[in-house]
């Protein structure tokens, strides 16, 4: 079914001196099972766009159809929509409120009206997904480390078993190890489930590594939309928007310019390493 957006427009604080157009002319089609990276610098409209996808914001102009439900429809079942489209906000650990980790993660499934057994099954599953075991269930979420809190908060959304998962900067403000861990878990989650994942980030490295398709937003509009190679192939255009290509692909490009025969479409450190090792080996053998 997927997500269809037609001519979406959003004006922030309309009719006041602070009026700004935060989205205009957005047309987008996201198929089930895609992994989309949504990039753009601060104020480009990314966060406004994703809040439209589960009906937190209603289109001022245009329309959005998610899994056959139009968010403009007055009878639209928003509760159902919100359990189908899981949205993890930026710094989600700031929304933790319960006494125990278990209770906090159970908040979503309980709101869905599930039975006690079903809630338990989902909470356990969600916490396992993010790598937290039973020993953590009865701890207070406030005594956990930053990375653990973040994972509890993500589990809180996963426990609702959404068909589409949207994550807004899930790795922001974490140390490199936790960052790595969370991104790996998201990747694993995507591969093991049939979820559609939309990852909002301004880290080109993160997006390049795990997304299949990249959407670039600039000044409330979609500026580029395509495969990783297509988008990062246009380094100049990205730079003009205040974005950048992954460091690795800059390195690869520089090598290429010096006449070293390396594949230009490399966007991850692992692939670059493999390619360079191969080149070195060839050279030694020659």
């Amino acid at each position: 079914m997927g997500i269809t957006i037609r001519n979406l427009e959003h004006i922030y604080m309309e009719g006041s001196p602070f009026e700004t157009k935060s989205l205009s002319g957005i047309n987008l089609e996201i198929q089930d099972g895609e992994f989309v990276g949504l990039i753009g610098h601060t104020g480009s409209g990314k966060s406004t766009l994703i809040q439209h996808l589960n009906g937190l914001l209603k289109p001022q102009k245009g329309e959005i159809i998610v899994n056959g439900i139009s968010t403009l429809d007055k009878d639209a079942d928003l509760k159902k929509l919100r359990s189908e489209v899981g949205l993890v906000f930026q710094y989600p650990e700031h929304q933790l409120f319960e006494e125990t980790v278990y209770k906090d993660v159970a908040f979503g499934p309980k709101n869905q009206g599930l039975s006690e057994d079903e809630v338990r099954a989902r909470v356990t599953e969600a916490l396992h997904y993010v790598g937290l075991d039973e020993s953590m269930f009865d701890k207070s979420p406030f005594e956990l480390s930053g990375g653990q809190k973040r994972r509890v908060a993500i589990a809180g959304v996963l426990a609702m078993r959404p068909k589409t998962l949207i994550l807004d900067e899930p790795a922001a403000g974490l140390d490199p190890a936790s960052r790595e861990e969370i991104l790996t878990q998201i990747r694993a989650l995507y591969l093991n489930s049939k979820m559609t994942v939309i990852l909002v980030s301004h880290s080109m490295e993160d997006v390049a590594r795990i997304a299949g398709r990249i959407i670039v937003m600039n000044q409330g509009k979609i500026d580029m939309d395509g495969k990783v190679a297509e988008v990062f192939g246009e380094a100049e255009r990205l730079r003009a928007m205040g974005l950048d290509v992954p460091q690795v692909s800059r390195l690869v490009k520089a090598l290429k310019e010096r006449g070293i025969p390396i594949d230009e479409n490399i966007y991850t450190i692992e692939k670059a390493k493999a390619a360079i090792m191969l080149l070195m080996k060839d050279k030694r053998e020659a």
Binding site: K79, R82, F89, Q95, F97, V157, M160
Partner: peptide
């Protein structure tokens, strides 16, 4: 921001009796 995040998890701030609404504010 917080109210949106909790709404995304299915919280409902607008319905039910007074006690239920007050309870809904805890999150």
């Amino acid at each position: 921001k917080i109210s949106k995040a909790q709404q995304a998890r299915g919280a409902d701030f607008g319905s039910g009796g007074i006690i239920q609404r007050a309870k809904a504010l805890v999150p």
